[in-house]
Design a protein around this nucleic acid. Structure first.
Lengths: 285, 285
DNA sequence: CCTTATATGTAGTAAACTTACGTAAATTAT
DNA sequence: ATAATTTACGTAAGTTTACTACATATAAGG
C-alpha cells in the first residue's frame, strides 16, 4: 500500500471526528501550510479549543505529539501535492484560478494513485496482453481518451482501434467473440447506450473492461473494472478531471504491457519513434 | 534557478563553515532524517557543541530557528526521495510503477503550474473570447487533445472545430482570415507540416496560438505561445506527459473564458449539462 | 604582546509541549 | 425520565525545548 497523504487521511476521517477534533481538522485543512508554522497555542486558539485537544488530535493520526505532527504535515505538503478545498470563484483572477485548476487536478491524481487497486491493474494488463483484438470505446469527452489510448496501444503491434460512434460500437460489440477485449471509458458509467453495448459485448463472450465510476451500471457489466471515484461536480467552474485520471491510468496500463513484453520489445518501440524523425525540424540547441 | 535542496546547500557550504558549525553539519548530513526528529539538545550533544551553536547554524541557513530548520529539512528529504527514483525500472512490479507514473505526471503538472505565464494565459483568453471562429489543430497524440478542446469549447456557443488531418488543416488555414483563431497543439513544436500550416494561417492574418515547447519553430510563428517545457524523454518506459499538461492548460483557458462571460452565461452551460440527462441511468444512491 | 574581532559556551528565561486530573457532556441501561 | 457509565474536553501544573543576553575563549591583525 502506498503511503496515503496525511491531508487526505484527515479529510477522509473528518466525519468520524469529535466536535473539537473536527474544529482542529478544519483549521488545519483550511491552511495546512500555516499550520506547520504555528505553535500548539496558536492553533488551539484558531480552532477555539484547548491545547490538549490539539495534542490528542495529533496522536489520533499516529503522531508522537504536536511537533511530530507538524513534521508529517510539512512532508505531506511537499511532492507537489497542494491541497485545495477552495473552488474557483466568480471573481478569481488568472493568477488565482490557474493554480487552483492545476492543484485540483493534482489532488485528484494523488487520490487515485493511493486508491487504485494494483491487482486490478495487473488483471487488466493480463487481459490486454492476451487480447486478439482491442477496442477502446468512449463517447463525448471520453472519446478523446479512447483516441489517445489507441494512439498509445497501437505501438504494441496489436490490432487496436478506437470508436466514438455508438452505432459502430454496437456493431463491433455484436460481432465480437472470445479473445476480443472491449475497453469502455466512461466518466459516469451511466450512459444507457454505452451500458447496453457493453452488455452485448459481454453476452458474446468478449472481455469487457470498464474504466469508470465504481458501482455504476457499466462497472456491473464489466469483466474487470478500474474504479475512478470522482467527486461530485459541485462547482460550476471546475473542469471535469476524470478525463485526466483516465489518461494517466491508461499510461499505467501501457507501461504494464511494455514491461511484460520484456526488453526484446524495446527495439520495436524505438523503430516507431524513429519513423517520425523525418517529419520534424531537427533541434539546433 | 529553482530552489536547491537544503541538503545540497549544506554540503556545498561545508568548507565555509566554522569548526562547531561544521560539526553540526556533519551530524545532520550523516543522518538527516533522524535530525528532523531530535531536539536541539540531542543534536548539540551528538555534534559535541553547545545548543546556541546549533541555533546559529540554523539561522545561517535562513531558518527562523531550530524548529523551522527541522521543518525545512524534512521537506527537503521528501522532495529528494520523490525526485530520485521516479524512473520506471525494467523489473518494477505494478505496485512500484503505478505510483511512479502518477508521481511523474504530478511533478510535471506542479512544475508547469509554477512556471506558466499568467499574462499569456490572459492574452489567449482574450483572443478566444474575441474569435469569430476557433480551430483546434493537433496531429498524432495531440489530436486527442485537440478533440478534447473542441468538446470543451463548443459549450461556449462559439463556432469551434478540431482537426487531426493535415490536409484539412492546410485548407482551413489558407482560407482563414482576421478574426479566426488557429490553436495549434504540439508536443515538440517541430513537426514540419504543422509549422508550415501555422505559417499559412499567420500569413492570412489569422491569430495563431501555440500550445507547445518554448523556442520551437512553432512557437516562433505563433502570435501567442503557451510554453510547456517538457523534460527530454530519457526513459524508455515513461509515458509522454505533455498531453496531460496540455489538457490541463486547456481547462484553465476554458475556465478563463467562462469567467469572462460572467454569471449570465451559466444557465447556458446548465442547459447543455441537462441535455445529457435522459441518456443516463439515474443515480439510485 | 596587546587589541580587536570572531567564535563558542553558560546560564537564565520564556515559550511550547505534555501529563494528570477533574468536570461536563453524551450515551446507555434501568 | 433518571442514574450509571462512558467518552469528550478543559484547567492547571510540570517538563521539556528553544532562544537571548552575556561572558569567556580563541583567532587575527597591528
Amino acid at each position: 500500500m502506498h503511503s496515503q497523504n496525511l491531508i487526505n487521511i484527515i479529510s477522509d476521517e473528518l466525519p468520524n471526528l469529535n466536535k473539537s477534533e473536527s474544529k482542529v481538522a478544519r483549521v488545519i485543512l483550511a491552511d495546512p501550510d500555516s499550520a506547520t508554522r504555528s505553535s500548539i497555542a496558536t492553533l488551539a486558539k484558531a480552532a477555539e479549543v484547548s491545547e490538549p485537544s490539539v495534542n490528542r488530535f495529533c496522536k489520533r493520526f499516529n503522531a508522537a505529539g504536536f511537533p511530530d505532527f507538524k513534521l508529517k504535515l510539512a512532508k505531506a505538503l511537499v511532492s507537489g501535492v497542494r491541497f485545495v478545498n477552495r473552488n474557483v470563484d466568480p471573481d478569481d483572477e488568472v493568477s488565482s484560478y490557474t493554480p487552483k485548476i492545476f492543484d485540483g487536478t493534482i489532488n485528484n491524481l494523488a487520490m487515485v494513485r493511493d486508491k487504485i487497486s494494483h491487482s486490478r491493474v495487473n488483471q487488466v494488463v493480463d487481459k490486454l496482453i492476451q487480447a486478439k483484438r482491442i477496442y477502446f470505446f468512449g463517447v463525448g469527452a471520453s472519446g478523446s481518451v479512447a483516441r489517445d489510448a489507441e494512439n498509445k496501444f497501437f505501438r504494441f503491434n496489436l490490432p487496436v482501434s478506437f470508436h466514438d460512434d455508438v452505432l459502430m460500437q454496437r456493431m463491433l460489440a455484436s460481432t465480437g467473440s472470445t479473445g476480443d477485449v472491449f475497453f469502455f471509458i466512461s466518466h459516469t458509467g451511466r450512459t444507457k447506450e454505452v451500458v447496453e453495448i457493453a452488455e452485448i459485448a459481454r453476452a458474446n463472450g468478449s472481455t469487457v473492461i470498464g474504466l469508470t465510476a465504481p458501482d455504476s451500471p457499466l462497472a456491473k457489466v464489466s469483466s474487470v473494472t478500474l474504479d475512478v471515484e470522482v467527486p461530485e461536480n459541485t462547482d460550476e467552474y471546475m473542469p471535469m478531471t476524470s478525463r485526466i485520471v483516465h489518461l494517466v491510468i491508461l499510461d499505467v496500463l501501457a507501461t504494464g504491457v511494455t514491461l511484460r513484453r520484456g526488453p526484446d520489445f524495446l527495439p520495436h518501440l524505438e523503430k516507431i519513434k524513429n519513423s517520425l524523425k523525418p517529419t520534424r525540424y531537427p533541434r539546433t540547441s
